[in-house]
Every structure is written in structure tokens, then in C-alpha cells.
Design a protein around this nucleic acid. Sequence first.
DNA 1: CACGTTCCTTAGCCTAGCTAATAAGCCTGG
DNA 2: CCAGGCTTATTAGCTAGGCTAAGGAACGTG
Lengths: 144, 144
Amino acid sequence: MVERTTALQQALGLREAITRLNRRLRQARPVGDLTMAQLSALTSLELAGALSPRELADVERVQPPTMTKIIAKLEERGMVRRDPHPTDGRQVILRTTEPGRLAYEQVQRAHNEWLADHLADLSAEDLETLHRAAEIMKKVARAA
Amino acid sequence: MVERTTALQQALGLREAITRLNRRLRQARPVGDLTMAQLSALTSLELAGALSPRELADVERVQPPTMTKIIAKLEERGMVRRDPHPTDGRQVILRTTEPGRLAYEQVQRAHNEWLADHLADLSAEDLETLHRAAEIMKKVARAA
DNA sequence: CACGTTCCTTAGCCTAGCTAATAAGCCTGG
DNA sequence: CCAGGCTTATTAGCTAGGCTAAGGAACGTG
């Protein structure tokens, strides 16, 4: 039985933790100059294969104009390609390019190494907790 | 025994989860118009009682000029007061005002209710995992 | 007491978010 | 079959929040 008060206290701690750790992660941009937003969009696109800007905006939970900007940055760097939709002239199809995939993997690896380094002191139990929490957090973010 | 590969995988999931959930939390600004950064600074100041801009910047893990801006916004809204340091003419002492405390509590409550609402479907076990993860994440953010 | 250090701020830049408005293409009802 | 309305994407313009570099004021010490 979970009381409401308990859930609220947990919520408080989680929000603080996310705010702080998110800032730390943003600061740790060790290789390449992909920002968090760019890396996140590139990741979603890579995993999905091909998406319209609208769909990518929905996945990333941002408004379409915001996604337009992020895509523009990625396109400048040659990491994303914009193809016309075969039947619908309004839509655009986004795909990662080969350089995009390589940059993605490289930055992803560097980011994760940074995080792993900073997790190095934690016990196996703590790591397991973080792992499970990450899954739960993604589920929560996906819903609602 | 924790293998490096395992830790890396966990790190990957955690970064994604933080990015996504942080965006959702930023969008959920139900009462008042305090942003995440402002709320976070106000919280740190409220908990500490009184801090110099430099100290607050260190706590919040941002550079001093960034904190100057955030403080300016909070001061505009009358939520933070800037007093001269009794002996050191360079320093400034920041404190939350009474309106600041009230706004902080109100927004804090609203934010946490939003989060608690979205955590309502989770099992007691998942909530416990999130709670423990939040503690660990704050520790990681504090270190390094 | 002069010089280096510390503290805060200013100036100027960038990213990332938003809304409102625009342009282009699709589709449907009369 | 085409007029008007919806959808998609972009542009324009705003704000917040992050950074570095550079400045002025105050401190403290050799």
C-alpha cells in the first residue's frame, strides 16, 4: 500500500535529481559538438529509421518549429538527410546519413563513458537500481 | 561483480530517460511561471537560508554570470532579496523573501502533484526504485 | 600601499524552447 | 471539378538559460 504522501516525497526527490543530473550531463560534451537535443533527435531518428519532422517532434515531445531548428543544425552538419515524401508533397522524410550514424555512435559512446566513469564508484546494487529506474522513467515520460 | 559493459548499458538508458523526463517536467509548469532553473535556484536558496551568488552558482552547477541572470529574474518577481555582506563589500547575500517562500511552496507542490499523478499507476516497488534512484542520482551529480 | 586575487556584473554569443503567422499541398462536399 | 478547409512544414520573433571574455570594485598581503 503506497500512501500519497510517500509518493509525493519520492516525486520531489526525483525532480531535483533529474534537474541536477541533467545539467551535469549537458556540461559533459566530450567529443563532437552535438548538443543534448541534437543527440536525442538523432537517436530517435536512428532507432525509427525514417520519420517526418512532425513525427520526430512528437517523439521528442517538442513543437514542430523547435524540431525544424534542430533538424536544420543536424542537416548543416550532414548528419541527417531530407527526402521528399513519395505521395504527399507536404511531408518530408528524414533519415540519418552514414556520417550521422558514425557521429551518433561516437558521441553516444563518449557520453556514456563519461556517465559510466561517474558511476564507477557505485555498488552493483546501485547500478541495478539506476538501470531499473531508467526503464520506469522512460515509461512515465512516454505515457501521459 | 559488475562488468563494464553492463554499466555502460545502464548509463545509456539513464541518459535517455533523464533527457526525456526532464523535457516533460519542463513542459509541466502548472502554476506560477517559475522555470525549472528558477525553481531549482529558489529551492537551493530556501534550503540553505542565505548564500552568495557564487555559492548558489556552485550549488546549482552553473557559471556565475548564469546565476546573475536567474537571480535577476527572481528579484524582479520579488522572490529573492539581495543584501550587502556585513564585512565584505564585494559579496552579496541572497535570501528568499516571504512571497518567494510562498511561491516556492506553491509551485513545488504543483510540480510534485503533476509528477505524483503521473506516477500513480506505478507499483509500490517501482516507486521505491525511483526513490532510491533519485538519491543515487543526486549523489552522482554532487560528486565529480 | 601597490599589486594580485576574488566577487559580481555586463556584454555578447549560442541553443532550445514557445506562439503566431505563412506557404504549400491535400482532400472533400457541393 | 474546384473552393474552402485541414495538415505539414517553415519562418519570424520572443524568452530563458547556458557559456566565455572582459570589466570594475573591494579585499588582502608582501
